[in-house]
């Protein structure tokens, strides 16, 4: 293992680590409680002090999860959409009548909930609405303004108005399998992650296409910085940041490449307030990277397993990480 990071500032000693009991697939903060989502059945609630508490949530694999800071919504292969709170209580919010896998979940304005099973997307606001995508749904995201859901599928993404069922959804087209979708915080750009090692995007005002490529493998983790100026992404042995300032966003511009390492970046998490990105790598390394100058802080030394979960608390004081091998921790950065 190379020692290219010898001598950088480290916060590793401020870590409260524990064994999650299974591979960690996601982590979300509810206040100062970190909720580690395991690949199967349960979530682990943990704070900086004390032992974690296990909550049984699904009868099977947990396929997707999302949080608004108050609760964690999850979808499982048991066909259930569940809600888990900071008290460690879990309940079923909805379930698929055919017990299909709930592949994706999303949270929208006023507590609206969206999920998908196969080709169908559902939104539950005041009423339950259904949308039949042209093919299997690859990802869901609410647009930041209004009540609209972006649904990624093969050959593009559809923008659906759940409250106007008569209105045909708008389709943004691009050949290939679109697996995840995200909107820039100002709502001007829509970006999808594809099966191929690339991102695709559209400027919504004029539907102009944006291609962001050069990755080693497909991008499985991405996030917007606090002001929406950058889109941080995984998929290469460096942190790749696409610039979204200005009316053209990344069009015609090169990405910023920071924090090169021996292994690929697997997870990214942007600090809620500052232009800092936490990057988790394939060998278990976690770095905090400052965008302005690429300065790094060591948050976790490389270990055996890849980082598969990474998140900041809403106040930016705590960082949580989890690995494929079942290691989990909270780091106190106050």
């Amino acid at each position: 293992m190379s020692d290219i990071r010898g001598g950088i500032v480290s916060v590793v000693e401020r870590t409260h680590a524990f064994d999650a009991g299974g591979p960690v697939v996601a982590v979300h903060f509810l206040g100062h409680s970190a909720v580690f989502v395991l690949g199967e059945e349960a979530m682990l609630l943990a704070e900086m002090n004390g032992a974690p508490r296990r909550v049984d949530v699904h009868d099977g694999a947990i396929l997707a999860s999302v949080s608004d800071g108050e609760r964690v919504i999850s979808g499982g292969d048991d066909g259930k959409i569940a809600e888990t709170d900071a008290k460690g209580e879990s309940r079923s919010l909805a379930s698929d009548p055919k017990h299909r896998w709930i592949d994706h979940v999303a949270l929208g304005p006023d507590g609206a909930l969206a999920w998908s099973a196969g080709k169908q997307a559902f939104v539950r606001g005041k009423e339950l609405r259904e949308f039949a995508a042209p093919s299997t749904v690859g990802g869901l995201a609410f647009l930041p303004k209004g009540f609209r859901l972006a649904v990624a599928h093969y050959n593009g993404a559809s923008l659906w108005f759940p409250n106007a069922p008569q209105a045909a959804p708008e389709t943004l087209e691009w050949k290939g399998s679109h697996l995840g979708v995200t909107l820039s915080p100002d709502g001007r750009f829509l970006v999808t992650t594809m099966q191929e090692p690339m991102l695709h995007g559209w400027r919504l005002a004029d539907r102009k296409h944006m291609r962001m490529s050069g990755y080693a493998v497909r991008v499985t983790s991405l996030g917007w910085t606090a002001g929406g100026d950058w889109l941080a992404t995984s998929g290469a042995p460096q942190l790749i940041l696409w610039p979204f300032q200005g009316k053209d966003g990344p069009m015609g511009r090169e990405p910023l490449l920071l924090a090169p390492a021996d292994h690929r970046v697997e997870m990214v998490a942007c600090h809620p307030r500052q232009e800092i990105v936490a990057a988790g790598y394939g060998d278990g390394l976690v770095l905090l990277v400052r965008i302005s100058d690429g300065a790094e802080i060591l948050a976790k030394r490389p270990g055996d397993a890849r980082i598969t979960a990474l998140a900041w608390s809403a106040d930016g004081m705590l960082l949580a990480w989890g690995t494929e091998g079942g290691e989990a921790a909270i780091v106190d950065l106050a």
């Binding site: 292969d77 196969g118 093969y154 691009w174 290939g176 399998s177 099966q195 191929e196 690339m198």
Partner: peptide, 22 residues
């Protein structure tokens, strides 16, 4: 598990580069 048997073409213009996305 039920599958949809959805095959899609990779975006490289090659018709044989197909993948079972589902």
């Amino acid at each position: 598990v039920g599958a949809d048997e959805e095959v899609f073409e990779m975006n490289n213009g090659c018709i044989c580069c197909t993948v079972r996305g589902d």
